[in-house]
Simulated assay, not measured.
Amino acid sequence: MQINPQELAEGIRSGDRRALAKGITLVESTRADHREAAARLLELIMPYTGNSIRLGISGVPGVGKSTFIESFGNHVISQGHRLAVLAVDPTSALSGGSILGDKTRMETLARHPDAYIRPSPAGQTLGGVTRRTRETLLLCEAAGFDVIIVETVGVGQSETAVAQMTDMFLLLLLPGGGDELQGIKRGIMELADLILVNKADGDQQAAANRTVADYRMAVHFLHPRSRHWQVQVEPLSALQGEGVQKIWQTVEEYRQALGDAGEIESRRAAQARAWMWSETADSLLGELKENEAVKALVDQLEADVTAGRIPATVAAKQLVEAFLG
């Protein structure tokens, strides 16, 4: 099938959901001809990107991310916005895509004409998954979605990757228990611009209030990501929709504060530069692995490194020298 990037770009800009789905499938493809068409498509839509607020969301399993995104998303849409939800799940290739279930859990959101939910692209490496998610984010912006949520599944390296492609990072916690009990590393806490204690309802209300108070104290000891913003901690009942309006208000305040300071613009510029070098490294590594001279050396060098006969640095130098010929 012949792909016309110009037609696809026009379809995406006109709000055609089928064109957007085709565009995302194209940027997720690893075929060489598709990568070329995808690069052209991204060039065409670039002038129409950047007009959204990009939100990263993370939390431990069972914290209620899907319920929160459904409740928050519906509120955001009721305020006149269009919402896209993307997922970064480096395990999806192995698990079959744990995020796929979220489309069924976010039932009202999934059916809303002003919402678009996209499961994580299959990819065994975090780098591969985040690369495609970045490109998908740009396509969604070009299609007119002005609030983009990038959800990360699990707690680990993916948080850092998501923080590096968004403007604001939201961390969801459960009532009670410290960081260790919730499996949250200090580094992840330091990524957060807004901490939400979910399930603040029923018999967990008191525990949630105590957790909010504890974290409000704790954030003063953390190094903030921005000198223009003090990390906020808020209670939330995603199930009952309580606190959702306040959270959206906080997002708007954050956007205003960092936008006025020029920090969102400078942060995105730094993200774009980092993305360029990441793409360069990925492309070079791909070329190197396919090089015949390199392939001829790999098995022996891997065996030597594994057996401890030579250090990895020496083996790497030999591979690079073989590649450069």
Rank of each mutant, 00 (worst) to 15 (best):
A32K: 10
Q300H: 13
G176C: 07
V63M: 11
V27W: 06
A161G: 00
D16K: 13
E265Y: 13
V305R: 13
Q2T: 02
A84S: 13
T313I: 04
V27Q: 05
R210V: 09
A269N: 08
M46W: 13
D299C: 03
V88T: 05
E253S: 14
A281H: 11
R18Y: 09
E28P: 01
S95Q: 05
L173T: 01
M165S: 02
K185C: 02
R309Q: 04
R105T: 00
G50H: 09
I247T: 12
N198Q: 06
C140K: 05
A207E: 08
S78A: 12
F68Q: 03
H75I: 00
E321F: 06
R111W: 08
L297Q: 12
G178H: 11
R227H: 10
G243H: 08
V314E: 15
A39V: 00
Q300K: 14
I77G: 02
G308F: 11
E7H: 14
A115E: 01
C140F: 08
A207W: 03
G62R: 12
M189S: 05
K295Q: 13
I24Q: 08
A274D: 05
T25M: 11
E321D: 11
L41T: 00
R111A: 12
H220T: 03
Q232R: 15
V294L: 09
V314P: 00
V320N: 04
R35W: 00
A39E: 09
L138R: 15
Q240Y: 10
V298S: 03
I57R: 09
A122L: 08
A9M: 10
L222I: 05
D102Q: 09
V305T: 06
L20S: 05
E180K: 14
R267F: 07
K246E: 03
S14R: 15
A315R: 13
I247K: 04
K22F: 09
I3S: 08
L173E: 01
A39L: 06
A19V: 04
V155C: 09
L171G: 01
A110F: 13
V60A: 15
T211Q: 10
V314M: 14
I264W: 09
E253K: 14
V60P: 11
I69E: 02
H34L: 02
L42R: 15
A93E: 02
V153G: 12
F169D: 00
I3Q: 10
G177A: 08
A312L: 14
Q79N: 03
G177D: 06
M189E: 05
S66W: 12
R105K: 06
A87K: 12
L319F: 12
D201F: 08
M1E: 03
K199M: 05
N209S: 11
L94I: 15
H34D: 10
S78W: 04
G96L: 07
L236I: 01
S158G: 02
E242L: 10
S158W: 04
L284H: 11
D167T: 06
A296V: 01
N74G: 13
Q2G: 08
G183Q: 09
